[in-house]
């Protein structure tokens, strides 16, 4: 009996230690760590968080090189800062966490600007338009969310705007959540879920690149933008990015980016719908 009591005491103590650690963690949570432009320049490397499994925006080719629309922009940023890039492969749900803990200086992982996120990180000027879209298998194309049955599941990726939107506006729809793009797409191909909800750019690309899929809903929710994000309060980097984006607008940089990375997938039809140049979103048509 004595031993059991001792054991329970030890365990209680363990729990207390764990709780104390967490409490300390809670109090220190407001300390944000970030590097200013000067600090980044001095170190000679910028840490940029991108996707490594989201073709054609951020992926790794067969030679191990990062490629895509976001990456093309990242390369230019590093070039203009005069530093090397250290790419950090992120998942959708990690993006805010990476910024808040200073693991990356900038997130360029197809990060949609939302009000909730803007409370946690600072967004620079946008460089792409986005809305939500839904792609289904050809044999059962979902054209309206009302077609989703009680047992049907929609695939979403954890931490994306599609997830937030559906959770908020359609709490009764069952979601099948994955934490990486690669996993979600493989599962969708394998017949999990009736459809896949994501950024419309992404689902359109998927339907174009793969046979047997149709984008039944091209635009859902509000029209949003995608922008670089920095750690909350990192004004020096934020201002630099904004100036950079404005300057890049002069030379139509993002159009060139589109043509280099996205045209192969989307053709040129989507160029003006997707690209945001100089941080200025064209008035809604």
């Amino acid at each position: 009996m004595k031993k059991i009591i001792r054991k329970i005491a030890a365990i209680t103590l363990a729990a207390v230690v764990a709780a104390a650690l967490l409490a300390g963690y809670a109090f220190a949570a407001d300390d944000v760590v970030y590097r200013t432009v000067d600090e980044i320049k001095e170190s000679g490397t910028i840490n940029i968080g991108v996707f490594s499994d989201k073709s054609p925006f951020g992926y790794v080719d067969e030679y191990g090189e990062y490629q895509g629309y976001d990456v093309y922009f990242a390369q230019r940023l590093a070039q203009d800062l005069g530093v090397e890039i250290n790419y950090i492969s992120t998942e959708a749900a990690n993006r805010i966490e990476y910024l808040q803990t200073g693991k990356v200086d900038v997130i360029l992982a197809n990060f949609t600007v939302t009000e909730e996120r803007a409370q946690e990180v600072d967004f620079a000027l946008p460089y792409m338009n986005v809305a939500l879209g839904i792609v289904s298998h050809d044999d059962r194309v979902i054209r309206d969310l009302s077609e989703i049955g009680a047992d049907d599941r929609i695939i979403v990726i954890s931490g994306t705007t599609a997830e937030t939107y559906l959770v908020k506006n359609y709490p009764d729809i069952l979601l099948q959540k994955f934490d990486t793009y690669a996993a979600a797409k493989s599962a969708f191909e394998n017949g999990t879920g009736v459809c896949w909800a994501n950024d419309n750019t992404e689902v359109i690309a998927f339907a174009i690149e793969n046979e047997g899929y149709t984008v039944g809903i091209e635009s859902l929710g509000s029209a949003d933008t995608i922008a670089p994000a920095v750690t909350k309060g990192n004004e020096s980097l934020l201002n630099w990015l904004n100036d950079e984006i404005k300057a890049l607008g002069e030379e139509k940089f993002f159009h060139a980016d589109y043509e280099a990375t996205l045209a192969e997938t989307y053709g040129l039809d989507y160029e003006d719908t997707l690209v945001v140049e100089g941080g200025v979103v064209a008035a809604a048509e």
């Binding site: 490594s52 989201k54 073709s55 992926y59 080719d61 492969s89 992120t90 693991k103 690669a182 793969n210």
Partner: peptide, 25 residues
Amino acid sequence: IGVVEVLKVGQQIIEANRKASPNAA
């Protein structure tokens, strides 16, 4: 936690070749 190790590389390969090699998984 974002270390690009064998499994993540595997996912990247599957992703980059989805069209050419649908059974890569």
